[in-house]
Amino acid sequence: MTKKIIEAQVISNQKIAEGIFRITLDCAAAADATESFNAKPGQFINLYPRDKSMLLPRPISICFTERNRITLVYRVVGNGTRELSCHKEGDGLQISTPLGQGYHIEAMFEAINQDPSDHKTIALVAGGLGIPPMLELAKTIRTQIGEDRRIKLIAFLGFQEKAFLIEELSSFCHEVHVATEKGDFGFHGTVLELMEMQNIVVDYYFSCGPKPMLKALAAHCHRIEKPLQVSLEERMGCGYGACVGCTCKTKEEKDGLMRVTPKKVCKDGPVFFGEEVIWSE
């Protein structure tokens, strides 16, 4: 079997900003699963609450991985995430092995290498709880860039008030630009306003965050004809592709015709190409 539900062990669980927590889990129990914890950036896991009055799994993006350890960053918004915030070191936690399709990193490298002009810039654009998955993505891209000085990785991050994960992202990105909507830190405004002001030429975009932000960014990328990959969020039932609860409409070319194709966010996504998503809803 390629996927499993495992009992992970809590290594640490700390508050990193008001209402925001970081939890690190030991997933050694998954090591004997065929897929182990070989997570791709942009994938998520299902967290199964202990309180069985909460039936459904909570999907949370993978923020960082290190051997058999994964780190998640989450905001307490309801009973499930509240329960999660109460877990202590050593507690067991039911989770799934990684789910969904992550960011298509090979596709990005292919796209930017196609055109021979020397210097390239990759941008990570994220808002709020869309920021955590950017860390694993930044790590993976930076590892692949290695010492190649022609490729630059920059992050544009938008927060409401308090910023988090900036230091961590700075260790993998060449530049990190921060905006807060309340003006507590960095640029006072939204991440898209910040991008506009910085006016940096970007060759490839990766994004995760609130839908209005993704939609506006997709329109921007369409205008300037730059590729974009987005990670979408949807209410989920199963989180693994069995219930068709998490549908999203996409455009797909089939037999030379553009067709509207429903896709499952949990299985076909959460990452999609900006051009493929039908945003008008």
């Binding site: 039936l55 209410r235 989920m236 068709v244 609860g245």
Partner: peptide, 30 residues
């Protein structure tokens, strides 16, 4: 899952809601 003579689109999302000890779905037989 339910199959119909012609394709069905189902309902827009959100299609899933958790309730105490249960869940609601409005997949709409997509």
């Amino acid at each position: 899952k339910g199959v119909s003579i012609a394709p069905w689109e189902g309902n827009p999302t959100p299609r899933i809601a958790e309730t105490y000890g249960g869940m609601l779905n409005s997949v709409g037989l997509q």
